[in-house]
Amino acid sequence: MNQIENILFYIALGVYAGAMILYLFFFLGRKEKFGRRGTLLLYAGFLSHTAALMVRGIGAGRVPLTNQYEFATSFAWGIVLLFLIFERKYKFQAMGAFVMPVVLLVIGYAAMQNKDVRPLMPALQSNWLVFHVATAVISYGAFGVAFGVSLLYLIRDRMKEDSFIKKHVPDLKQLDYISYRAVAAGYFFLTLVMITGAIWAQQAWSRYWAWDPKETWSFITWIIYSIYLHLRIARGWRGKKAAVFAVVGFIAVLFTYIGVNTLLPSVHSYA
């Protein structure tokens, strides 16, 4: 099982890298055929990635969401899933040039982690595990999409307006709306992450909140996106300010996961 999983995982990683290169050729070289090929390749990589997760789950006898490697690879999977959903809905392949580098960063981090399957520690033997971590995967995936779209928003005015840009890159108003939709989806699931995490913590450690570094940074991230949504809804924030906020929010997401796991001791560091 481990060998099959590794083969599928590294196929996915390589195909994602290929898809990123095609999206960059599409966006920078203004070649439509590369965009279509990039999307087809991304679907192939996503299928291989999904199969790798399924094989690991079958081999481990549990949902593969319990250690650094498993969450990192699931995090990358979530970004790809949300990207494919948004790309299909908005017909927006240029987004791939900005989202796929993030996918490669996260799945590359996963590749550096210990892939051994180990028995679950007592704190992880809970039915809340799947709900808590799965909602985090979807939330982080949506924020990753918002990050890529917001980066594109910030450089949109600097692009030479030609037929390719008019056809394949939405205007500023549409980019702002897509980013907002992604943030709103991510925020909903992040709120569920906080709620299910508190319930799980009460069962595992007899307290709802302990200001553990992961909890604290998750709360900081939630506050950042809460401010974003409040200012947008209550004060009509749009445009560049909102895009910058979405970028800062995802930087907080990356630090909450990679930074805290690497730099700060936490009860959430399971591997």
Rank of each mutant, 00 (worst) to 15 (best):
N6W: 12
K166G: 09
V169K: 04
Y225K: 07
R118H: 12
W217S: 01
A76E: 09
F164N: 00
D212M: 07
L47A: 11
N67C: 10
A52D: 07
D176R: 01
T66M: 12
F255M: 01
F92H: 08
R238C: 00
T39S: 15
A246N: 02
A184C: 11
L28N: 09
I251N: 03
F71I: 14
V149Y: 03
T221G: 05
K31C: 08
A72D: 03
I79T: 11
P64K: 07
P101D: 14
D162H: 00
F27N: 01
A201F: 00
M112I: 15
G186L: 10
P122I: 03
T256G: 05
I258E: 01
G96F: 00
P101N: 01
Q113H: 02
F26K: 10
K160P: 07
F86P: 07
Y257E: 00
F255T: 09
G186V: 09
V99I: 13
V55Y: 02
R36D: 14
G186C: 05
V103Q: 01
S179E: 13
W200Y: 00
D176E: 07
L42A: 04
A97H: 11
L22F: 08
I4C: 12
Y140F: 15
M1L: 13
W128R: 12
Y225S: 02
L105Q: 08
T256V: 07
S269W: 01
T221D: 12
A201D: 04
G18W: 06
G35T: 06
V63T: 08
M121N: 15
L81A: 13
W222L: 13
Q174M: 14
W211C: 13
A146P: 00
G236D: 13
A234W: 14
V193C: 09
H268Y: 11
L81K: 04
Y270W: 08
G61W: 06
I138L: 12
S126L: 09
W77H: 08
I233L: 15
W237G: 09
V248W: 01
A182R: 05
N127H: 15
Q125T: 15
F25P: 05
V247I: 13
T216I: 05
S126W: 03
L264Y: 08
W77T: 14
R207A: 15
A110K: 04
F26S: 11
G108H: 00
F83L: 11
V149F: 02
N114G: 06
N2F: 15
